[in-house]
Nucleic acid binder design. Structure first.
Lengths: 245, 245
DNA sequence: GGAGACCTTTGATTTTGATCAAGTTGCCGA
DNA sequence: TCGGCAACTTGATCAAAATCAAAGGTCTCC
């Protein structure tokens, strides 16, 4: 997290296109980029920032409708469950994504932090007021929705048509490309999900995930220490195993 | 398809909130609902209507960026393929949905008609001009994107966590609820997809789909004649088999 | 009405991943 | 440093769905 001095914050508010949210004190691509200085100030008066611990629910089923949030750091899992407990993670949100369900009062999603996560959240009505004032904001939200739609459809191909091996490799590739977007694709990183979470994301069991990770390690596609830290010697190789052209 | 007389069309253009597209001569919830009379007229001057036969591509990979379209009648499959040919249908669009990839120049999707389908399409630049003029239009497109996102995530749960039996039942339920939205859930309908298409939608093989359909028939969950026509005696029963609460 | 193509169903067998069941490892607090 | 616990790994077995193979149906076009 980057520290923003008082002077810096003033500079930001004086610039034409502020890209730093005064409330979060963080530069991010969330919702703030399209607002004017005055609107940003308005927003920051209503926003609250907090840290969410792993496994803690950010917003529950049907409840996400209450607030919108920028993810400042960390990873959030979006998941759905069947009545008998079977669970599927339907999306991962990384900083600096925006989270929320604009214009939808109902959502069968649960959002919980996968690792320690800082979020900056706003009440729904404030966002909706800003949307009606600033046409650029709806455009921004719309683009985020389309991005998530693309990602969801890509993942459907993975869930429906890839083998366990390809699924695990695809997962590692997703993490490598999203865990630190500022610095491009990472070749060494900590997995933000447990084996159980990975299984729920891939539509597999814990045991199968573990076996496939072991196989990738034995085939020298990845290196591993302490089960969370992963190194990818050749991203091309990983992509090939993942079935990505 | 409903015939619109000259008088009727005038009435439509004189009403405050026209809901019938003059170009398509059809009442639908596509893109037209939020436009003023003048804008509708503008749009209709640039739109072309055509019939697409089953298997015919509506817009190819990376090409959907060229045009937007309302589906007047029929069903369109959106699919993705892996380099070795494995295919996954990532979405179905029913009339009166809107199709297109607003603000995205690239899309790895293929859209093709599943059955005879009438579409009314517009060039991208006309839509973009209208979006900048009519703020309500972007809101409409945004909502459509969110609806598709919800559907995609629901389907991810089906792909990742349901059994073959539940998948097939879920598919039948989707068709029953979408094939004729004007009249609510249908209890008797023609499947718009071949067994091969259903398999690609469910992440299964043709043979597994066929066996599960047979099983549903033997269990009296559905009745079938000529392999396309399906009757559902009890929608509750079907939903239960599909794992929908 | 019949030949051929294509779609669908059914059957036998194989394979992948799930399930059941121990072990390891690593981490945290006493 | 030592338990104790949770997360992870590994092995043996099982089951669901894939694959391989062969018939039926249905439709179109002669």
């Amino acid at each position: 997290m980057q520290i923003v001095t008082e002077q810096r914050r003033k500079d930001i508010h004086n610039s034409d296109i502020p890209s730093v949210c005064a409330a979060c004190e963080a530069r991010h691509g969330g919702v703030c980029g399209t607002l004017t200085s005055d609107q940003l100030l308005d927003l920051s008066r209503h926003s609250t920032r907090r840290r969410v611990e792993p496994g803690r629910e950010v917003v529950g089923q049907g409840e996400m409708t209450d607030s919108y949030a920028n993810i400042i750091s960390g990873v959030v899992k979006l998941s759905k469950v069947l009545s008998d407990g079977r669970q599927q993670i339907v999306g991962l949100q990384f900083a600096p994504d925006f989270m929320g369900r604009p214009f939808t009062r109902e959502s069968a999603l649960t959002a919980e932090a996968a690792i320690d996560t800082d979020i900056c959240s706003f009440p729904r009505n404030v966002i909706e007021r800003l949307v009606s004032e600033a046409p650029g904001l709806e455009h921004r939200l719309h683009e985020q929705a389309l991005k998530e739609l693309d990602e969801a459809r890509d993942w459907m191909l993975t869930l429906g048509r890839k083998t366990a091996q390809e699924k695990v490799a695809s997962f590692l590739y997703i993490i490598a490309t999203h865990i630190d977007p500022e610095n491009g694709t990472a070749t060494e990183f900590d997995l933000p999900l447990s084996r159980a979470d990975i299984a729920d994301y891939l539509g597999l069991t814990i045991e199968t995930v573990s076996r496939q990770v072991t196989k990738l390690r034995k085939d020298n596609v990845i290196r591993i220490e302490n089960s969370r830290r992963v190194t990818v010697p050749s991203m091309d190789r990983l992509m090939h195993v993942a079935g990505i052209d």
